[in-house]
Design a protein around this nucleic acid. Structure first.
Lengths: 212, 212
DNA sequence: GGTTGAATGTGACTTTATCACTGAAGTCAC
DNA sequence: GTGACTTCAGTGATAAAGTCACATTCAACC
């Protein structure tokens, strides 16, 4: 069954009516949920899996803006849904995802009838704005070596990640060569072990646990 | 009288009730509308003037995220208002501004009663997300000299701006020295004339009008 | 086992950031 | 008006990051 906290908030009648009008959809890894220039068909409520949202600049470079996981709402879609503008970013499924697509009419009705639903939407928007503001700061001011180390820690503290340098460059919004060189340096310092398409974190320490 | 398009959308009863419960406030240039860490007192609807929203990173550097002018809604405040989280950014009045402060209760009521109000809020959110996404791309991938030229064009095509290099650095999210050097180079090429706290644009051409 | 394409490595060079200053332009007190 | 102060701007040296061009390596597939 479709499990999403924003649906739990609804009263029984409203939830029942909603569930009758939506369908749960499965998205295999790799599938593009939407891409730049496309129009929005409905508001996705993510039930599971992982979806990354990235945009490609005029320069042709891409950067990952944020991720959606279980219980997230695709906030980006709301604006496109309501105003009819096209998406500016692209959403790609990373881990087979499951989502409910809420069509415009149902969304309007839920916004009208449920204060809880409205709160959920507003919260989601707030989080997303926060995420993006933090990203701006990170991209503008933080050093790439630190950002790389943090990414690795967040993703694979003492484990291994399967990712190419190119993909990692898109995560951080930089160039592949920069990632390659920084990783090489980390390997030289015995903090990671590199192999083709795979990075094993062996001795990275969290910044907090290190002397500054 | 308080003129804001999102108030015009309301029906007469609702508008009247709303206007009774809010007050129009004046903010002189330089005043800080809110700053990081503070809690939100209400949703500002901007009636006039100009307010810049900027954040300061852990590094101590600041960057301007976006501006609000007449008819804008301080989207950032909604999240803080609804969830009780503190502001992460700071809003500074640039040109004497006028705004209506909508308290939480009134906001809830408007969201509940007016589909038009909801649409306005959602549109505003969508625009803001778009702005921030574009900013991320700009900061991550575009060259500083181009960004500087565009800023100057957008702000003072063939006129003069009163701004220090430091302030301009915050606009672009870079260091003062970088701005100084780039400006010096533009002056050398007779595209601007520099004086203390003032930049006169004399011969900058819009990119579209130039050969690439 | 050779071919192919993707992934990674690397040198050379440019742009941007950082640091540590110097000097110049305004402001204010007296 | 002159000196003291403060803010703003200029600059050299160096480090970090981005760009370009190409070399090498690896894995997969006939």
């Amino acid at each position: 069954m479709a499990r999403h906290s924003i649906l739990d908030i609804l009263n029984d009648t409203l939830r029942k009516e909603t569930l009758e009008k939506v369908r749960v959809m499965q998205f295999p890894a790799g599938q593009v949920l939407f891409s730049a220039g496309q129009n929005c068909q409905g508001l996705p409520l993510v039930l599971g899996g992982r979806i990354k949202v990235q945009m490609t600049g005029v320069s042709g470079h891409s950067i990952v803006l944020y991720r959606m996981e279980a219980d997230d709402i695709c906030t980006l879609s709301i604006g496109c849904l309501m105003t009819g503008r096209a998406y500016r970013a692209e959403a790609v499924v990373e881990e087979g995802a499951e989502a409910v697509m809420i069509p415009r009419g149902v969304f309007d009705r839920l916004m009208d009838q449920s204060a809880g639903f409205r709160l959920g939407i507003m919260e989601s928007y707030g989080r997303r704005l926060d995420d993006l503001m933090l990203l701006v700061e990170e991209v503008a001011f933080r050093r790439m070596d630190q950002r790389l180390e943090e990414w690795l820690l967040g993703r694979a503290a003492r484990g291994a990640v399967v990712i190419t340098h190119q993909e990692l460059a898109v995560e951080l919004g930089t160039a592949r060569e920069v990632v390659s060189r920084l990783l090489k340096e980390l390997e030289r310092r015995n903090m990671v072990r590199l192999s083709r398409g795979r990075i094993e974190v062996t001795g990275l320490l969290d910044r907090q646990h290190r002397a500054r």
